[in-house]
């Protein structure tokens, strides 16, 4: 691809701002790769220039918890090398199964090849290998620190659970009250029927005694009539 140097400088201005239309950007990128005549110095100058644009803004500070969030995310990343190790162990197990004469499974890669494939990419000499350092003790990524909390956070932390507890408390009270109500209702019903049954029973007893007494009188009357 041929491109005039002046044209490429013009394109650089839009490129560093990120507003070059996609097809033109593609052309500029291939020009960058293909030509030795590319104005790299101008590109660098305009990249620096564009990076100064935010200096016009009024700086704000992010919340204190953001640093903790970064630490937490990095802390979580420490698990990645362990996954690699687990994958390695699985391969060894598969190898043992094959050695024991179990039904053979066709494996395209040797365990070593597989490990190489999943190992982190090699870095330049100056930069130590990341995974080693991450495995090597977690020296690097600290435990998330607990920073001093702002007044607002403290209030939130204190107030929110209290409200929650209060809500939980009222729910609990509701449940207890309902149970008490049901218990009392049951007791009331039981007592009511108990009294009612007792009344009936006593009525029946009375009727029974009257009947017995009547029967006894009738028997006495019959006996007297026979004697007379």
């Amino acid at each position: 691809m041929t491109m005039d140097r002046n044209i490429s400088v013009e394109l650089i201005k839009s490129y560093v701002l990120g507003c070059l239309n996609p097809e033109v950007e593609k052309g500029l990128k291939s020009f960058m790769e293909d030509t030795e005549n590319f104005p790299w110095q101008e590109l660098g100058q305009y990249q620096n220039l564009v990076a100064m644009l935010p200096l016009n803004l009024s700086f704000e500070t992010p919340g204190l918890e953001v640093k903790d969030r970064v630490a937490r995310k990095l802390y979580e990343l420490r698990g990645e090398p362990e996954i690699t190790q687990q994958a390695g162990e699985e391969i060894i197990i598969s190898e043992q199964i094959l050695a024991d004469g179990e039904p053979q499974v066709l494996i395209d890669e040797s365990p070593q090849e597989f490990l190489e494939e999943i190992s982190p990419p090699e870095l330049s000499e100056e930069i130590p290998e990341k995974t080693e350092i991450l495995i090597e003790e977690n020296l690097v990524v600290k435990e998330p620190e607990i920073p001093p909390k702002s007044k607002e956070e403290t209030i939130e932390k204190i107030v929110s659970p209290t409200v929650e507890e209060h809500r939980r408390g009222s729910k609990m009270r509701d449940i207890l009250e309902r149970e008490e109500f049901e218990k009392r209702t049951r007791e009331y019903i039981n007592t009511y029927y108990q009294i009612m049954f007792e009344d009936i029973r006593s009525e029946l007893k009375k009727v029974f005694f009257v009947a017995i007494a009547g029967l006894a009188l009738a028997i006495v009357a019959i006996i007297i009539s026979f004697i007379v």
């Binding site: 935010p54 803004l57 700086f59 500070t61 990095l74 100056e126 930069i127």
Partner: peptide
């Protein structure tokens, strides 16, 4: 930071977080 020194990353955060946060928020 390239040597995976987390304190260096923290220092970088202290220096650049207001600028970067302002830009991102914008």
């Amino acid at each position: 930071v390239a040597g995976y020194d987390s304190q260096a990353l923290e220092e970088l955060y202290e220096r650049y977080s207001p600028l970067l946060f302002t830009l991102i928020n914008r």
